[in-house]
Simulated assay, not measured.
Amino acid sequence: MGDAAETAQEARTMGNGNGALSGAVIAVAGAGGPAGKAALMRLAEAGAVVIGSDNNPERLAESVDAARYAHGGATVVGETVDLLDLQSTRDWADRIEKDHGRVDGVVHLVGGWRGGKAFTRTGIDDWDLLEKLLIRTVQHTSLAFFDALQRSDRGRYVLISAAGASQPTAGNAAYSAAKAAAEAWTLAMADGFRKTAGESDLTSAATILVVKALVHDAMRAERPNAKFAGFTDVEDLAEAIAGVWDKPAAELNGNRLWLTEKP
């Protein structure tokens, strides 16, 4: 957790809108969950304009309202977008750039998990679901936002991945394979940024934050005796996300930032 603590501390030094995120326009996919809510609040605190999307309008509204309430004056917007439809995702990217003049970041927090106790009990229907949630949404958001992020002087695409992508277990075949595919796609995007920049200084980056799993207060309340060893709290993840904009694009692009111990 040392890397996570260092990244979180770097993010805290930004203050309330005085750092690298001040005025940045950030899209957050999967903003309705606990991690999305924490990310919206932290990015708003840092002075960013935040546009969240989720397929659950009620959860999305709750996250947006919480960020607005916590940071009065912050611009936090929610929009229900079908990220499984490429054109809908492209339209979302175009609207953000038209309305706000730029796009400086995309944070991919669309999640989902299916697994079992044994490899032979892996359900192919689990793969069918996870392929949509964990891969297709990465493909569509990265394709839709690539050009806008490339135009930004601080463009960042941030994928949240899992340690299981590097060391899959028998019961997590579908989940680990989907995460590994999402990582590979993101690394290809990073190469696209590198090649598009050519001889110019790299200003945009695609990077991966790796966790073992996430934990939040509601989980702790449900399982008060659980240790959640190696898990990353959603608020620490939000700090790490904000800290991405403190790092040079060349340092981030095509790299994994581990928030838990490497397997």
Rank of each mutant, 00 (worst) to 15 (best):
T141Y: 09
K227I: 13
V234W: 03
I51N: 04
N18T: 15
V110R: 07
E222P: 01
T13V: 13
G32A: 11
S200G: 00
A27L: 13
N253K: 01
A174I: 07
R156H: 04
V103Y: 00
T260V: 09
E45Y: 11
T260H: 04
M1I: 03
D217R: 08
G15S: 04
D99K: 10
G115T: 09
R220L: 14
T13E: 15
W258S: 03
G123K: 15
V77A: 11
G155T: 00
G2M: 02
A188W: 00
L60C: 10
A29V: 12
A5Y: 01
A238C: 05
A8M: 00
G30Q: 05
Q139A: 10
G19P: 01
N172I: 03
R90E: 14
E183N: 12
A93Q: 05
T260A: 10
L86M: 09
E235W: 01
T80C: 15
R68I: 14
V107S: 08
E79F: 07
L252I: 03
L60E: 09
K262H: 07
A229M: 08
G230W: 10
H100S: 08
E79V: 13
R156W: 03
D191M: 03
A27P: 04
R256H: 12
R42M: 11
A218C: 03
A165Q: 12
G33W: 08
R256M: 06
F193C: 02
R102T: 12
K117P: 12
A205I: 02
D99I: 01
L133Y: 12
A11I: 02
N225E: 15
G164Y: 08
N56V: 12
T196R: 11
A170I: 10
L84H: 14
I208T: 04
W127I: 07
D128R: 15
G78F: 05
G254D: 01
M41K: 12
V49G: 06
G105K: 04
G254F: 00
S142A: 15
I51V: 15
A242S: 11
A31Y: 04
V49N: 07
A181L: 06
D65Y: 09
N18M: 11
A61D: 15
A165K: 05
T122C: 13
G254Y: 01
A61S: 15
A177K: 06
E239S: 02
M14K: 07
G171T: 08
A218K: 13
R121I: 05
S166N: 06
D217I: 02
L40E: 11
F119T: 09
N255M: 07
A213H: 09
Q150S: 07
D126L: 08
N172W: 08
T137E: 06
G78I: 08
